[in-house]
Design a protein around this nucleic acid. Structure first.
Length: 256
DNA sequence: ATGACCCCTCTAAGGGGA
């Protein structure tokens, strides 16, 4: 099975590129984030490529989806105990595809460490941890998406630039460590260029072509899945050219 | 050349992203 995760930064703005990428990459399951579309407005062209679609969206902000050619069962919007800001936001969708519980997550940004959004981010990650306990007891799990946390200093292009910012603070990193303590492994993805598997590069100031990026999109997998990985890469080709997302996809192959 | 912000919509003296 081949699965992937990609923050597309608007599925409507990215549709031609998404359709081309799905055709050439041919993943069986895709977790999308920042679709920025209400679920009844999700583009039908994706289903025309043969994917079943579980979309959870609210319009202008956020929005997540799972695309699958491996079945799409027990779809859930959000998770038990998920906090809002203050209302519920479309940041998680999960489904069983090919016997694996896939969850596509778009973790809150946090804005600044002093902002109420940062508290929300930590509460959201803590609630996610609690909600995953029964899922992990039930079978194999993949939680993939935009975590908006760089797990280590090696995961940002210059740690000094991020001092005092969100995405690198000890509480955020501790929240990810709590997820890993459940038995989830951070699936390492190889960069196709350079030493760091960055997945995000700011649109501004030529950050991509200088490879000044961040590794904030992650694939967390239960041990049975992690042990079946045959390859994982950051598809930086999808970040090139005209009209890209500011995030690149991660593509993972596992043995059947 | 990968090439120097971009998405959305209350179309901005805007909000949000990270």
């Amino acid at each position: 099975m081949r699965f992937a995760t990609w923050n597309v930064n608007s599925v409507k703005a990215r549709l031609p590129r998404l359709l081309d990428w799905l055709t050439t990459t041919a993943p069986d399951v895709v977790c999308l984030q920042e679709t920025k579309v209400a679920q009844d407005g999700f583009p039908g062209e994706v289903a025309e490529l043969g994917y079943e679609v579980a979309a959870y969206g609210q319009g202008r902000w956020n929005g997540v989806a799972i695309l699958s050619k491996a079945g799409l069962g027990d779809v859930r919007h959000g998770f038990d105990g998920e906090p809002g800001f203050p209302e519920a936001e479309a940041r998680a969708v999960s489904a069983i595809c090919g016997g694996i519980r896939f969850m596509s997550v778009y973790v809150p940004n946090g804005r600044t460490p002093e902002d109420p959004h940062y508290t929300y981010k930590l509460q959201w990650l803590a609630a996610l941890r609690t909600a995953l306990v029964p899922d992990l007891a039930a079978g194999p799990v993949v939680v993939a998406g935009d975590y908006n946390v760089a797990p280590t200093d090696a995961d940002v292009w210059d740690p000094a630039v991020f001092a005092g910012s969100t995405h690198v603070t000890p509480p955020e990193r501790a929240a990810l460590a709590e997820l890993r303590a459940l038995g989830l492994s951070d699936v390492p993805a190889r960069p196709l260029k350079g030493d760091h598997p960055f997945t995000y590069w700011d649109y501004r100031a030529g950050m991509f072509h200088q490879n000044k990026g961040m590794r904030i999109d992650l694939v967390y997998a239960s041990s049975d899945i992690a042990g079946r990985v045959t390859d994982a890469l950051v598809d930086r080709e999808a970040r090139k050219g005209k009209g890209p997302s500011d995030h690149a996809p991660i593509v993972v192959d596992i043995k059947d």
